[in-house]
Design a binder for these strands. Sequence first.
DNA 1: CGGCATCCCCCAGGATACTG
DNA 2: CAGTATCCTGGGGGATGCCG
Lengths: 128, 128
Amino acid sequence: MVTKEPVRNPADTDVTRADSLAREIFAGVANKWTLLVINILGERTLRFTELRTEVGGISHKMLTQTLRNLERDGLVDRTVHPVVPPRVEYRLTEAGQALRNTVNRMCEWTRTYLDHIEAARRRFDSRL
Amino acid sequence: MVTKEPVRNPADTDVTRADSLAREIFAGVANKWTLLVINILGERTLRFTELRTEVGGISHKMLTQTLRNLERDGLVDRTVHPVVPPRVEYRLTEAGQALRNTVNRMCEWTRTYLDHIEAARRRFDSRL
DNA sequence: CGGCATCCCCCAGGATACTG
DNA sequence: CAGTATCCTGGGGGATGCCG
């Protein structure tokens, strides 16, 4: 007799625990380059170089690395067109799109609180 | 003649630009420790040590540093009770709460796609 | 064009310790 | 208990170069 859906050990799904799988995944995704790339890759399909120019300031190396991780986690699809010069296209998978929704909110949040934060900083810095 | 609300230079609000204010703020917030701390500080008010134990794996130094940044940006309020031993309490401001909403979604996303991602990784790793 | 490897530097971030 | 400072190491991340 087996449990059909072997329910995951709750310890794995707890972002709070330093050694949980959830934490591992969360930490892997929670960094600026990953989130920015996901944000740029909206509904669109983009080539490597397009991505590179759209994500301001990202280096060739970091973009490659970020994309490999995203591909490995199944958040982006990578399509290689067998032509010369090579044409490689990236687009979000369904899982990637889902994450993108949250990233979008984060970007909106940034815009919404820009002034607020800038003001808070001035206040904080100008007292002592 | 002045414009009443000096509309912000669009360049400042574009997360995409490497040198925009939006990017600066986004990048400052888009890292695991900051997001985890914000997530833990839900509606609750927590003391330093409580936070320390609730955010598994964070070092004393990183927690201090993260909290200072959040305080500076006006995302958390810091209350010092003049007693000995000191009692310092942290809670999210309205801006912090707003950000927390997006962080929560990100945590939920992590749980939702745990298996999905784990499977994708196995597939990716096991070919070549 | 896109991937991968190499070199290298700088700083994120941990460990430790002293103050109020 | 909380904050600050110092020390020190690993690895994040840039620059460059060479292949397919």
